[in-house]
Amino acid sequence: MIRPDAPVLLEICDLRASVEEQPILKGVNLTIRAGEIHAVMGRNGSGKSTLSKVLAGHPAYRVTAGSVHYRGEDLLALLPEQRARIGLFLGFQYPVEIPGVSNLEFLRVATNARRQEQGLEELDTFAFEDLVRERLKVVQMDPAFLERSVNEGFSGGEKKRNEILQMALLDPLVAILDETDSGLDIDALRIVAGGVNQLASAANATLLITHYQRLLDVITPDYVHVMAAGQILRTGGKELALELEESGYDWVDAELERLEASAPEGLAAAQASRTPAEVG
């Protein structure tokens, strides 16, 4: 839902970031207002996953220039846990398995960390169990998964449901979902996407990072951004995703060539970033 007067939740200005001295993000600009759903699409290595990790504060990525403001606050100055507590959520492409740590306990500690920041009272074991059982319905998840270790032995679909369950518990203002559709069969995709739709409201915003149109068949984006070589090359409405589905990413190369003509250094850097495998 686009409302020009809605408050800005996230403002990314000329964001540049490197991993192991390799520049990946080369000037990303993006403004997200409350109520909006954005989709970032692009090839492998375009930098879209890097963008999500930089926003969440992954220590392996170094911001070299630019700024990110979250509701006016300098996001990059905050620790990852502080970002999460004030309402930024990253749904992982590959949720991490943590043997020996109970999923229920993990969810409770995380939920209470967020609630404390929100000025809500912390939930004891019993109150939390009531809450979690209610939120399980968002992703139609079997309560048996609460008793297991975090993500351990979960199938791809179960892991993604667990991510959306965390989102439902943490009640974020900006949710970044990194390839949430990858590894899901059509039923699981429907359930996970249905969960995201239920949680989207006029007060929060969602940033979907995805390869494919199929997620966007279920979650309708207000904006679609195409990333290439660490920048957003083009922004459009939901029809841009359909166009990509039809014509592929070949036009991106043409666009990059045009960039080369205007700024040769930009392309050299862009090509360097496409060679290493799986940077995005």
Binding site: E81, I98, V101, V109, A110, A113
Partner: peptide
């Protein structure tokens, strides 16, 4: 990082992992 990204402070996250 996974635990931190859920609002759990680094020292508490380390403790959780060790306990696990």
């Amino acid at each position: 990082f996974y635990l931190q990204s859920r609002g759990i402070a680094a020292d508490q996250a380390a403790r959780l992992l060790l306990r696990g």
